[in-house]
Nucleic acid binder design. Sequence first.
DNA 1: CTCAGATGCTAATACGCATTAGCAGCTAAT
DNA 2: ATTAGCTGCTAATGCGTATTAGCATCTGAG
Lengths: 347, 347
Amino acid sequence: MAGKGRLTQRDIARLAGVSQATVSLVLNDAKAAAGRIPAETRERVHKAIRDTGYVADPIARRMAKGLNRILGVFTYEPAFPSAQADFFVPFLLGIEERAQALGYDLLLLTGASGPRGQRKIFHENNRLRLADGCVLLGREFDRAELRKLMSSDYPFVAVGRRDPVGGKLAPYVGADYVSATADLVHRARDKGHARLAYIGPETGAESSVDRWKGFVSALGDARLVYQLTEVGGDARAMLSAIRKAKATVAFFTELADAIVVEAAARSQNLSVPGDLSIVVLGSHLRPQLSGTRFTTFSIPREQMAGVATQMLAERIEAGSPGTQVVLRCDPIEGETLGPVPNSKGMK
Amino acid sequence: MAGKGRLTQRDIARLAGVSQATVSLVLNDAKAAAGRIPAETRERVHKAIRDTGYVADPIARRMAKGLNRILGVFTYEPAFPSAQADFFVPFLLGIEERAQALGYDLLLLTGASGPRGQRKIFHENNRLRLADGCVLLGREFDRAELRKLMSSDYPFVAVGRRDPVGGKLAPYVGADYVSATADLVHRARDKGHARLAYIGPETGAESSVDRWKGFVSALGDARLVYQLTEVGGDARAMLSAIRKAKATVAFFTELADAIVVEAAARSQNLSVPGDLSIVVLGSHLRPQLSGTRFTTFSIPREQMAGVATQMLAERIEAGSPGTQVVLRCDPIEGETLGPVPNSKGMK
DNA sequence: CTCAGATGCTAATACGCATTAGCAGCTAAT
DNA sequence: ATTAGCTGCTAATGCGTATTAGCATCTGAG
């Protein structure tokens, strides 16, 4: 393709009887050539372009100009494979929509896998540079790489809050898990719950930390009577531990856990929320997977990605430094948070 | 960014006390420089690269070489927006996986919308050229554009069978809807069904034509007693028309139609498949959306996309012409195809 | 001692475009 | 009649890399 038949501006120039420079000027229209190139010449050039179907080579364009209206999308972690799909797709949708509106194309950075299948931004054949800037996706970031990226002047924006590295904050668009989680805890307390269980980690990814922080901040005189920091455990075991601790409501960071525990409860003739309330702290999985409408909050994933994309475009175009944004998560009423069972009130 | 701090081979050359050409030779290692550049010099260059963190600019690289290990993904039709997401995402997954394995990045062609929001491959600012080749997605293709593409020497592969244009076959990887549909018809006939209904178009996209072709080819002495070529109609109307025609089984090309008709049937106390069998001719929607497990066939979407990507890579790298491939669709037993009701056999 | 051949490297160029300086030719003001 | 200023265009250059031709220098055979 590129090799032989490829038309160049020189070909057009010859056909129109002008110089290559003139063709370029006509193509880039606007200011420079404004009063300078008469309509008649312009038309000759356009005709030659129409006749031949010429299109400018974006590579050469980028080579000459430095920008090519391409945004990179970099995903840490295994990647795309089906299991992760539900996590990434909504973000991708949000990015795609905004990119389209802004006139950018999207480059999915895929090839580069590190040792254990993780990806690395910086590696010998750094593709990132192909794009004018880059959106970073992923639950956990490699901090060393993030620092390196920040010390370069390559424009990027992360989706999801990021802790500062080296005392500096990366530009990001996150979700306010802290408030959203605290809000759910308050709702539970308003319904009389005072013995809470928490199934999820306190540390690790920023998103985990934020949920935990929100949970703790709203505890008040309620008590955490059971905690399990490992997710994906055995449903029956989780359920019996929760029951044994006499927790009346369980908070799950993983929807998957909530689903299996709820199923286990049903199979033991326990009613949810009659005997046990369940709250899910947001989720990346599709709620439809389960028939149950859990009490939770929605993560504005498409919006996060859209805002991040917008910010990235501004970094690129205006050279602005980028900021930190958190978007609120709307509560979802659901039907798994009820009043405390057996409280001294009515049955 | 690109402007100032950017390191170039010239910088490395200066640091290592060699020429730019030498740096390039060292970087591209292998044959040419094999015996020519002594380890000592090579090491000096590598050290300078390590010290500075230099990475070659892929744009310039492509400029000089002609290839950049990027595959384009072009989607006809509105694109990505949520409604279409379930259609495109599985293909994207398949492409992404194969691309990663082959060391390609993915360029999502998005920006360019045609007049009515459709996209055009050929338009003024043809981004396609950024990619070494392109995977084409979409139910319906613009035949004029396809012809144009075929007459160029730009490498591409379509996902989904395509009719020949101008007497020539485009390279594609499709699914064998003909056989899969015929197989389902045979199953229905084996269960005694002789009065069939078909809800779906006979013409239009290749995939529609193929289903219809398979359906007709397997009819035998069964009869098509009702047909509706428009999809997305009113559920009650569809159901009553099917019942009125005394069809015992209805074939749907759209899962969505099947879902609503089945729901309508239930609400009228009709049993599926007790009173009416329902067969769905494959689907791009998630089956989970409905609680019902329909009798249908699976479309090997990820596999199709993967094979197409592989073929594209071969077209690009080896200059092979590309072929036509159809993959088989596995039947899904489901629970909506039963024996004929009220036949002269038992109740 | 000469010269062919190997060795180690560099200068030059191409890739396709954008951009800048500036050259003719012409008009109009002095 | 001179010249300043405009109009319409082009030559030349740069972007960062890959690649080729070829220049020194050295080695060893004759």
